[in-house]
């Protein structure tokens, strides 16, 4: 079988998948009736609509010609996510400044050029700016380092 319109096909599959997921998750919530809806009613129907529409989009994509999906940029995706993960974990555990350091250095590594000196200078400037604006300027209650 040849998929003629990759973009729409995968979009349809994604929507159908989300629809199925919503229906499955909603089985934990009481449905109620149309006149006295339970918490499961609305999400189940939304899931069903999406499963149906997603399937239609995917099936139609088999027939009509369309663009291919361009390849994913894995390296930036992994590094940007890692930077955010480091910050989210770090700000509570090792403090604002070390967390920012990790975030800045890891995200900088997602680009094409990574010159150590340049990145370090940028990181210091960013940290100084962020501490100035957020800690001293608008007084966000983040601990600066792990000891406070």
């Amino acid at each position: 079988m040849k998929i003629k319109n990759q973009e729409d096909f995968w979009a349809g599959m994604m929507f159908a998948g989300f629809g199925a997921l919503a229906i499955w998750l909603s089985t934990d919530y009481p449905m109620g009736t149309a006149s006295r809806m339970g918490p499961g009613y609305f999400p189940t129907w939304l899931g069903a609509i999406m499963l149906l529409l997603g399937t239609i989009v995917a099936v139609m994509a088999l027939k009509t010609e369309g663009p291919k999906v361009t390849p994913f940029a894995w390296k930036p995706m992994i590094l940007l996510s890692a930077g955010f993960l480091a910050f989210g974990w770090g700000v509570d555990h090792i403090g604002f400044i070390p967390a920012l350091f990790l975030l800045s250095v890891i995200t900088a590594a997602a680009g094409q050029t990574f010159k150590v000196v340049e990145v370090l200078i940028m990181t210091v400037v960013l940290i100084a700016g962020a501490v100035g604006i957020f800690i001293y300027g608008i007084e966000l209650p983040f601990p600066l380092f792990w000891w406070r």
Binding site: S81, F84, G88, S104, T107, G111, L126
Partner: peptide, 30 residues
């Protein structure tokens, strides 16, 4: 851009975290 995007990431991370001071919000943003 190689300076601009890490700066945006830094400001975004702080902004997201400052809403509820919750690390989960950062992970959901990813």
């Amino acid at each position: 851009y190689r300076f601009l995007y890490p700066a945006i990431m830094v400001f975004m991370a702080i902004g997201v975290y400052s809403v509820n001071n919750l690390d989960l919000d950062i992970y959901m943003t990813i």
